[in-house]
């Protein structure tokens, strides 16, 4: 019976998982793995209690229903000390076991005391996008965090406005990003791949569109990515590009930096130096391609209502800007 239920549950989850979900039950890190294992153990304990108690309830309901013509009064039992002590003590024992398992797992996923960080990253929450700074490497990027496989990465979380929460289910549980407070967490993964993340603390209008990814690269790919990010931004070649460049370093520069090493700028928009090395934009929401970028610059508020980029750009200027941005590989 129990196995059958498990199979049914499994089927249901499979049905919905025609596409891969960002679930911690398919962990790509030791942290999420520990969390998933503990989750499963407790799920099984809970299911056993569920089956026993609901089963007993159904048994009582079927057996003790009033039958026709039964006018006899049931025995008037007020209490039974032994029984009541039993069903108080058993749950107490169970929660002691649960607590011990909790302590063990908290210790297992906590940053090791001898933690030697291979890479330091500063995550900055903005309404509604993510800034990722690599202070030791002198680079800054947005919405797509690259880390090398196998490295121990120490992450410092800051917010420039309200509370956000950093969550990549397959790599780690949530840590809140609280303004005025420096929370830290750590990441590590042995599996190359892309892992979806999303802001998990309600942060206003576009909380739903504050997504990101963590990309675990092989060391080689990571080094290549860093080398590219450290290069200065593309210099304009054609006339259109030149005109676009003037805009990007002019009006746009009020909010966007074009200097790839421009950490701590306090600018409200993401760094554009290597924009097209990323695959998404606007808080990891839209695929980054010419068509989407054109609609974005035409009317940012239609695509992501409420975002801080509340501007309208004339079609000609728009084309010039895009002709330049397309080269920011």
């Amino acid at each position: 019976m129990f196995r059958k239920f498990g199979v049914l549950m499994g089927l249901a989850i499979l049905l919905s998982a025609c596409q891969p979900s960002p679930t911690f039950l398919e962990p790509a890190s030791s942290i999420s793995n520990h969390e998933a294992n503990l989750y499963r153990i407790i799920l099984i304990m809970a299911l056993v209690v569920f089956v026993l108690v609901e089963g007993a309830l159904i048994l009582i309901l079927v057996r003790d229903r009033k039958r026709a013509n039964n006018e006899k009064l049931p025995a008037q039992i007020h209490s039974n000390m032994r029984l009541e002590v039993t069903w108080t003590v058993i749950p107490i024992l169970l929660v002691i076991v649960l607590f011990i398992m909790t302590v063990q797992t908290v210790n297992a996923v906590a940053a090791p005391s001898h933690l030697k960080s291979d890479l330091n990253i500063r995550v900055v929450g903005h309404r509604w996008w993510w800034e990722f700074d690599y202070p030791d490497l002198g680079i800054v990027t947005a919405n797509e965090l690259h880390i090398p496989k196998g490295a121990t990465v120490q992450v410092q979380l800051e917010s420039v406005d309200v509370i956000h929460s950093f969550w990549v289910p397959q790599l780690s549980g949530k840590t809140d990003v609280v303004p005025g407070q420096h929370n830290t967490m750590w990441l590590t993964s042995d599996q190359v791949g892309e892992y979806l993340g999303q802001c998990a603390e309600f942060c206003g209008t576009e909380h739903a569109l504050m997504r990101f990814k963590v990309i675990v690269d092989s060391q080689q790919d990571f080094d290549a990515w860093v080398a590219n990010q450290q290069k200065p931004a593309y210099q304009p070649q054609t006339e259109d590009e030149q005109a676009g460049y003037m805009e990007v370093t002019g009006a746009c520069a009020a909010c966007h930096s074009l200097d790839p090493s421009d950490l701590n700028t306090k600018k409200v928009g993401p760094n554009l130096a290597h924009l097209f090395s990323r695959s998404t934009f606007a808080g990891g929401t839209f695929d980054l391609n010419e068509e989407n970028l054109r609609s974005w610059l035409a009317d940012t508020q239609a695509m992501k209502p409420g975002n801080d980029m509340d501007i309208k750009i004339l079609p000609k200027t728009r084309d010039q800007i895009i002709s330049y941005l397309l080269n920011l590989k």
Partner: peptide, 20 residues
């Protein structure tokens, strides 16, 4: 059911995954 699924939320490391 609300009591049993609530247990997961008291388990700190699991809560980090499923809170919010």
């Amino acid at each position: 059911i609300g009591g049993l699924d609530g247990i997961h939320l008291a388990v700190v490391p699991v809560d980090w995954q499923i809170t919010d």
